[in-house]
């Protein structure tokens, strides 16, 4: 029983960007190539292209996030769209308005695209399935499910440094269980043909059947990062200690914290990534975070180009061809 992919329109083009799941390699490559064409825009004197002029993009953030929201806003503005920032957590939902009512009200204001972040897994799917047909939805993080633009900017960063994905060995370290970023990264890496994707964590921070995600599982950091080309560190939330998942930050750093010494097990030219914000001294040493192998700040700046690419592709299904090429 194959259902039509809700993310694609009837011509197989990207309509919503909700998850990497179900997207083909060519589609991901197109996103990366389009992003590549946008990287120049930020360096121009006039940092704008008129691709989405006259369109209204609504940033709908039910969870606080300064950085992700800002990069989406910058991306939208560089595409000449009008941006509406709504911090919904503080307004309507606390008054008892349902999510569906919020959607309907914003639709009535003629919004063309929603960028949504919500603490419920599946929130972006929900929006996409109930929104009017002309509206595009981009998932900026839903619960523990997906954060596909973050994953794509990570892929962009890897491709910039390593070229092809085939032949690469990538390790993701930390709280896989609760991480929407990790889920999307794993899907993207596998779709793009990465040779081996590894996850490294204690069992309390892994899902029940991690191999079903298409990864090799390691519990020992040094063993897990041996000969890898890319090390992706995940953020550790403080509440993991209270949920009896870990004894302490101290023991976590002892076992899974990335140090210069441990990084020696990886390939000599391995890069270190982190979706941010970093807990220095918990996930990694400052020496590593600020060191020559770290590409963490590049990730942030590539984030704008990748989000521009996804926005123009999902919305400008018609406009995109003319302007982006």
């Amino acid at each position: 029983m194959s259902k039509p992919n809700i993310q694609l329109d009837s011509h197989g083009r990207l309509k919503h960007f909700l998850t990497i799941d179900g997207l083909k390699r060519e589609m991901l490559t197109e996103i990366l190539d389009t992003a590549e064409s946008f990287t120049g825009v930020s360096e121009r004197v006039v940092k704008k292209v008129p691709l989405l002029r006259g369109k209204t993009i609504c940033n709908l953030f039910f969870e606080n996030s300064t950085r992700t929201r800002t990069t989406f806003e910058v991306a939208a503005k560089r595409l000449s769209a009008d941006v509406l920032n709504l911090n919904v957590g503080a307004s309507s939902t606390t008054k008892g308005e349902t999510l569906l009512d919020t959607l309907r009200n914003l639709e009535a204001m003629h919004v063309d695209m929603f960028v949504i972040r919500h603490s419920d897994s599946g929130a972006a799917h929900f929006f996409a399935s109930y929104a009017a047909p002309h509206i595009s939805v981009i998932n900026a993080g839903d619960g523990q499910h997906a954060h596909p633009t973050q994953a794509m900017l990570d892929m962009f960063t890897i491709r910039r440094h390593k070229g092809e994905f085939t032949g690469l060995r990538v390790a993701i370290v930390g709280d896989i269980l609760h991480s929407r970023v990790a889920r999307s990264q794993i899907l993207a890496l596998n779709t793009l043909g990465t040779s081996e994707v590894r996850v490294i964590a204690p069992r309390t921070l892994l899902p029940a059947d991690p191999r079903s995600l298409g990864v090799h599982v390691f519990h020992d950091l040094e063993e897990g990062i041996r000969d890898v080309d890319v090390v992706i560190m995940l953020r550790l939330q403080k509440e993991r200690m209270t949920g009896a998942l870990l004894p302490s930050e101290h023991e976590y750093f002892q076992l899974y914290g990335l140090t210069e010494k441990r990084l020696k097990a990886a390939k000599p030219d391995a890069i270190v990534m982190h979706p941010g914000p970093i807990n220095r001294g918990v996930e990694m040493d400052s020496q590593v975070a600020d060191g020559p192998r770290s590409v963490i700040l590049q990730q942030v700046s590539f984030g704008i180009a990748v989000r521009m690419a996804v926005m123009s592709m999902t919305m400008g299904t018609q406009a995109q061809g003319a302007a982006a090429r």
């Binding site: 619960g143 499910h145 997906a146 889920r183 029940a208 059947d209 991690p210 079903s212 995600l213």
Partner: peptide, 14 residues
Amino acid sequence: EGPVSARLGLPGIP
């Protein structure tokens, strides 16, 4: 709690 909940990021009930 199984492969589907792991993929959908839905907290699982073992």
